[in-house]
């Protein structure tokens, strides 16, 4: 099968949906001729023109709010926020407006919009350009939250997100943009709310998402002689495939959650709770553990930055502790 990068997969998803549906348009900062800060949208303006691929001023509140307004009036906008950290500037429009419209209006509105934004550390961009804030969005009823870990997932999930009739926060992973993976030429979509078992195993379940998935897979492979590790990627945190997590926990009896976001208040707590208050609890052989980022802003120095989030060494240690 052909291989393309994560960034190319996202571009293909947007372009295919824009060809398929006239009501889809795309806007954000430097997405036109520049092609986006990470080159995701290179060439799109040539195909679709400046009306449907709109360069915006640096106005995140207006971008997110305008997406909501365009969506509620019949368009299907894709808004790019250059770094997910900047979503906070438009947070009222996302959390108080887009997310709540349908419920507040008694079901008389649809808000089909996608906010795409790159998240995560590892680029040396320091504290305001490196965060993983997925838990913020998961805490707002009315938002769907998607975090793809492979080019295949990115394409299939983005196409579904664009077709979804609700606001979707689509968190891309900066360090994955240039990673290649198999993506079929023919059309496919991936439903939201369906976890993917990235690696089957019988001793331990690791629930992880985003860029941590590939790191966890490498550690799992390196320990294959000692532990049979199952790696479960929920892919979408809202809706969350709780059944898949519970079933895997029941099977292995050991659960570790690994995520890049700071541990305190992170979504890992929700995963742990999902296991703890299900009947999988009775199958557990050890407490359910979390390994998240440290409770600090992301530091600049490369070695400090690397250690602010889970590393292969820390993941291995967490596995050994849990299985001891």
């Amino acid at each position: 099968m052909r291989e393309i990068t994560y960034a190319e997969a996202i571009r293909e998803a947007m372009s295919e949906e824009m060809r398929r549906d006239e009501s889809v348009f795309f806007f954000g900062e430097d997405i036109g001729i520049y092609g986006g800060a990470f080159g995701v949208s290179v060439g799109m303006i040539d195909e679709f023109g400046a009306e449907r691929v709109r360069d915006t001023p640096i106005s995140e509140a207006a971008i997110i709010g305008a997406a909501a307004g365009a969506a509620v009036s019949g368009s299907r906008p894709i808004a790019e926020i250059q770094f997910s950290d900047f979503i906070s500037i438009g947070m009222d429009q996302l959390g108080n407006q887009a997310a709540k419209m349908r419920y507040m209006f008694g079901g008389h509105a649809e808000v089909p919009m996608v906010v795409r934004a790159p998240a995560g550390s590892g680029t040396g961009a320091a504290a305001q350009h490196s965060q993983s804030q997925e838990a913020w969005y998961c805490h707002i009823p009315g938002l769907k939250v998607v975090i793809p870990s492979t080019p295949y997932d990115a394409k299939g999930l983005l196409k579904t997100s664009i077709r979804d009739n609700n606001p979707v926060v689509f968190l891309e992973q900066k360090l994955l943009y240039r990673k290649k993976g198999e993506v079929p030429e023919e059309e496919y979509t991936i439903p939201l709310g369906k976890a993917d078992i990235k690696r089957e195993g019988s001793d331990l379940t690791i629930v992880t998402w985003g860029r941590m998935v590939s790191m966890v897979l490498e550690v799992a492979d390196s320990l294959k002689e000692q532990f049979s590790i199952e790696v479960l990627d929920p892919r979408t945190l809202v809706p969350l495939d709780r059944d898949a997590i519970v079933n895997s926990a029941r099977k292995t009896g050991h659960v570790l959650v690994v995520h890049e976001a700071v541990q305190t208040g992170g979504y890992g707590g929700e995963i742990v709770a999902t296991v703890a208050d299900s009947d999988a609890f009775y199958y557990l052989d050890a407490p359910v553990k979390r390994l998240g980022g440290l409770d600090i802003p992301i530091p600049y120095n490369p070695e400090l930055e690397r250690n602010a989030v889970p590393t292969p060494e820390k993941i291995e240690q967490a596995i050994r502790d849990l299985m001891a």
Binding site: A66, G69, S73, G74, P77, Q93
Partner: peptide, 16 residues
Amino acid sequence: GGIPIATGAGITLKLR
């Protein structure tokens, strides 16, 4: 809060 929403609705009308 409604000002960006009106503006986005304006995009829909402009495109149509």
